[in-house]
Each structure stands twice: as C-alpha cells, then as structure tokens.
C-alpha cells in the first residue's frame, strides 16, 4: 500500500429537503482496502454510496479522489464528462439488481465489451477474447457469450455485472448489496469470487450491505450507520467482536444463529 489514500471524504452531507439522507460523513479509503457500510434500511447507506459515486450531488462536504497520475481531484468540481469517464474506466458500480447495471437486450459478450468500446477499443477479435477471459473468471461458460442476460439466472447475472465492471481494470468499485436477493449457496460462491477478485486485482471497494456476514467476509474496515450518521467505525473484526455503540451491539446481537 502507498502512503496516500485513494479517496478522501470529509463532512459529506445530503439532505432531501429537511430530511437527512446522510450527515457529516468523514473517512479515508486506501488503495486495495475494502470498506463495508452497514446499517438497517433507511440509515443512509445507499445515499452515501450514490454521493460518493457522483450519481447524486451532496448538499455539502467534499470528496477527493487520487487519479492515476497521482493528483487528487475534487469529485464534485469535475465536469460531468470527466465524472462519466471516471465511472466507466477507473470505477465500477455493482447494483443490487443486475438489470440496473446490465444491458438486458444485448449479449453477455457485448455487455462485457461495452466499456472497452467506450474507451476506444475497435478490434472485434481482441474485445471478444477479453470478454471470453472475463466470463471464465466469473465462472460463466464460454458458450453463453452470445446469450442475452435475460436468459441468465440471478447469480449469473450478478457475476456478469461484476465482469462488466472489472474489465477496464478499475481501482475503485462501489457495490450496493451485491448479494441481495440471491440464495445462500449462490451468495457464498459469489462472495468467494468477489473476495478472490478483490485480492488478485488489488481493488479498493466500498460495499453497502445490511448483511453483517458479507461485511465480515469481504471487508477489512467497516462503518455502521444509523439515521444518516456514522455511529461507529473501525476494523471489521473489532467492530463485530467488540461492538461499542449501543446500536452496533443491538445489530450484532440481532444476527440469527442457525
């Protein structure tokens, strides 16, 4: 790891009128680090994620990102063209519902290849070879490359969405409930895959989840949110094994034991 963070967030707030989306969130994210944001629904996790990924503009606060040239850029002062370019090259966004992140009417290969074509790749053979490679890395059979995601199961769609996001070699990936709506065995394999990819590629990731097990498995550090504010943050194992804030204690003790 380098001695400079990848993303610096300071005093980030988002209000919907007089309602709080998230308030005064401050943290640094380091290269290769996975940060989990947990909390119950309505606690502002997704608002925070959308602000960080510039899909929403915050009401106040700053976030600066270290570009590939090593310079920090203030995200909310970039032009829309620059932000969108960042979104499809250096960043990835994995939606909870794969249909939001995939083009459902074009083939799996084109879904993976779209980002490559968006950054100017114009060689069909190379694009296809890259798509084949990425499909195999997310455990999708090569002979499904020309099928539309509509013909895929939920778990396959989610894996395809991950491949589509990672094909340009991003340094930061945002994930919104990546395992939501999948059954447990599929979840387990997806988590395994994600953990492998994150380690192999040295990705930094911000994972929003309400599932503490997902946070435990994927992340090194976590933030617990309640009513739009961060109530506790720290190393994942510390927070889960020794929760300090009363709300975190409640959250951890609410996990169903099988």
């Amino acid at each position: 790891m380098t001695d400079e963070p990848l993303l610096r967030v300071s005093g980030l707030s988002k209000f919907y009128g007089s309602r709080i989306g998230c308030e005064n969130v401050t943290f640094d994210l380091w290269p290769g680090e996975v940060l989990a944001v947990v909390g119950e629904s309505g606690s502002g996790k997704t608002t925070l994620l959308n602000c960080l990924s510039t899909r929403l503009l915050p009401s106040s606060g700053t976030a600066s990102y270290r570009m590939r040239d090593g310079q920090f850029r203030e995200l909310y002062r970039m032009s829309e063209a620059e932000r969108r370019f960042l979104m499809r090259t250096d960043w990835g966004f994995v939606h909870q519902n794969p249909a939001d992140g995939l083009r459902m009417t074009v083939s799996a290969g084109a879904n993976v290849g779209e980002r490559l074509m968006a950054v100017g790749d114009r060689h069909y053979g190379k694009i296809r070879a890259t798509a084949v490679d990425w499909l195999s890395r997310v455990e999708i059979d090569e002979d499904r490359i020309d099928d539309e995601p509509r013909a895929f199961s939920g778990g396959m769609r989610q894996r395809l969405q991950i491949a589509r996001n990672l094909v340009t070699g991003p340094r930061l990936v945002f994930m919104d409930e990546p395992t939501g709506g999948l059954d447990v065995s599929v979840q387990a394999r997806l988590l395994d895959l994600l953990r492998g990819l994150v380690t192999d590629l040295g990705l930094a990731a911000i994972v929003v989840t309400h599932d503490l097990a997902v946070a435990r498995l994927l992340s090194q550090r976590m933030m617990v949110m309640k009513d739009g504010r961060v109530v506790e943050s720290g190393l994942t194992d510390r927070v889960l094994d020794d929760p300090r804030a009363p709300y975190t204690q409640l959250l951890v003790s609410s996990i169903l034991q099988v």
Partner: peptide, 17 residues
C-alpha cells in the same frame, strides 16, 4: 459528451450473431 461506445455495441452484436 461524445460517448459513442454504445454504437459499437450494436456492431459487435451484429458480428457475434
């Protein structure tokens, strides 16, 4: 914003099919 990657997705689909 001159984001025309999608146009090539259409041509990619043609070749794939």
């Amino acid at each position: 914003l001159e984001e025309y990657g999608l146009m090539h997705v259409k041509l990619y689909e043609d070749i794939a099919k």
